[in-house]
């Protein structure tokens, strides 16, 4: 236990209030305000991987690490679509995931926001629309409010996109 405490105090807080990422902090503060205003301080996101290569998922995990710590702005990922405010979708929608994506969308309470994450979610990316196994981009299957490009988008891109979407609504 002592060693755990030593390690924690040795590393200290690495969560970015660094000069290099001042813009990130400003953005974070804005995001926090937007979430306070629209979602009483807590934005619940349900992620659906509709066919991604797992690259986007790695960056979503990274957005939760101690550097970005997206939770401090009030964003958290929920296990159930029933309490989700936002649906985050990655990947081109595969024909085998189409129904599950539609069901998850339907299971969410309205009003709901949908953010399509990554080039695949936006336009099927490297897998292409001319592919028998791809039902389409996310917007071809369910209504999409915003898209964040990148392969995969970085954690900063993701946080920025969530903020932009909240500001636009």
């Amino acid at each position: 236990m002592l060693r755990i405490l030593q390690q924690i105090s040795k590393i200290g807080s690495i969560t970015e209030p660094l000069k290099s990422s001042e813009a990130f902090e400003v953005m974070g503060a804005e995001l926090k305000d937007a979430i306070r205003k629209h979602f009483q301080g807590s934005l619940a996101i349900r992620l659906v991987d509709a066919g991604s290569c797992n690259g986007c998922e790695l960056e979503i995990h990274a957005a939760n690490n101690a550097y970005y710590d997206i939770e401090r702005f009030g964003v958290h990922f929920t296990a159930s679509p029933r309490f989700a405010d936002m649906l985050l979708v990655t990947g081109p929608v595969s024909i085998n995931m189409k129904t599950a994506l539609e069901m998850t969308y339907d299971a969410m309470p309205s009003p709901k926001l949908v953010l399509a994450m990554g080039d695949c979610a936006a336009n099927c990316g490297v897998f292409g629309k001319d592919n028998y196994a791809i039902a389409g981009s996310v917007a071809d299957i369910i209504p999409v409010d915003a898209v964040v490009h990148g392969c995969p988008p970085t954690p900063t891109d993701l946080i920025q996109a969530i903020l932009a979407l909240l500001n636009a609504t």
Partner: peptide, 10 residues
Amino acid sequence: GYVHKGIEKS
């Protein structure tokens, strides 16, 4: 098989 993306065909 849910994330089958037809990679072999593609």
